[in-house]
Write a protein that binds this DNA or RNA. Structure first.
Lengths: 198, 198
DNA sequence: CGAATGATTGACTGGTCAGTCAAACAACCG
DNA sequence: CGGTTGTTTGACTGACCAGTCAATCATTCG
């Protein structure tokens, strides 16, 4: 069977297209036909790989996270100082640049869809848990190195990630009062309170 | 014209119903017929007061905010210490209790809808600005009273509101790792860093 | 009273779209 | 070659629903 990875390749094509479309017009407006067109295929093919629209979107949400995590692996596993890693992490999260903004849009759609979908809540729980653990690990390192203030690392991780989520939403909404630059400044300020003097 | 406030009363009835339905099943699933049924009237009447579904939802989002603000006026205008007012404000925001959770749901739906609707972005900007100003005012009072650390009150207000938004989302999503109680603890911790020793 | 205006109703229409399906195509194998 | 399995296609269908509309009811006023 030399016809090896048609399925994997096609699925990825479709998932990427689905994320692009969601990001551009939102889940509510998304039609299977839009995804098919964007993926350069037909609605029949989309349904061949994903039984229902719901299946497709769940897979797309999952894929969106995997991609986001992949894009940040370098930062999380770097051997820079904890202080620097935390700064890089925050910077990579700022809604600026097509890939990041697009991923944020998909993420926001996931949240709202998940309000009424237990399976998506499960996905959120898993994924959010990974971020929380990654950030908490950096914080623990920083505390061990005497760079950060004492306190429960998980509490700080939750606070930081929550703040990033909330601020990002405002940036994504095109707020004049909350631009990516201003968001960076707010994060810097908060991190400043948490870092110990060098 | 003794038939005074039929219009105002009926509109309010419909808007309240719309918010309830959005909160329960989400904007995407909401049908005009659902709203009509919840309001105890007919689809014809809903369309009599709101030309399109979009008009209805915009008015409902607006109404949802007005109600939320009204519910918190007491806190914002209280003459308790700034420290207490800030705590009360955070407490009132925790997603617990039907009214608050419902309002949060509607708010989340607004955000995602606004990603692709300039008018709703405008509404968000206006409304978010009011919260920011209210919180910043408390912070300024607290700094004047020597209760809070120095620094730009607007930056702190943004950080706090952003964190509340992000954490609330997780609570709303039924996260096991982020319950209303845990959210309170995270907020307490962050406020603790901001308050000066008594 | 009877006309005018305001409010309410729900049956109906026109358009939309997820999902189906039968037909066709492509790669492989014996 | 001809059969088998995997893949692709897009026309079609059945369900759904926002918005329309003609009819009805209610209230006010001259």
């Amino acid at each position: 069977m030399a016809r090896a990875s048609v399925e994997a390749e096609r699925k990825e094509q479709i998932l990427a297209a689905a994320c692009e479309v969601v990001s551009e017009i939102g889940f509510k407006s998304l039609r299977i036909a839009d995804v098919a067109k964007r993926a350069g295929t037909s609605t029949g093919t989309v349904h061949y790989y994903f039984d229902t629209k719901r299946d497709l979107m769940h897979a797309a949400f999952d894929w969106n996270f995997t991609q986001s995590l992949g894009r940040r692996r370098e930062i999380l596993e770097s051997d820079a100082t904890p202080r620097q890693r935390l700064r890089d992490f925050v910077e990579s999260y700022l809604p600026q640049g097509d890939a990041t903004i697009s991923a944020w849009h998909v993420w926001a759609e996931l949240w709202v869809e998940a309000l009424h979908d237990a399976d998506l809540q499960e996905l959120n729980e898993r994924v959010y848990g990974e971020w929380r653990r990654a950030v908490a690990a950096i914080i623990r390192d920083g505390q061990d190195a005497g760079e950060f203030r004492d306190g429960d690392p998980v509490v700080f991780a939750n606070g930081l990630i929550g703040m990033i989520d909330g601020l990002s939403l405002q940036v994504l909404l095109g707020s004049r009062a909350m631009t990516a630059d201003r968001m960076r400044a707010v994060c810097e300020q908060v991190l400043g309170w948490f870092f110990l003097a060098p």
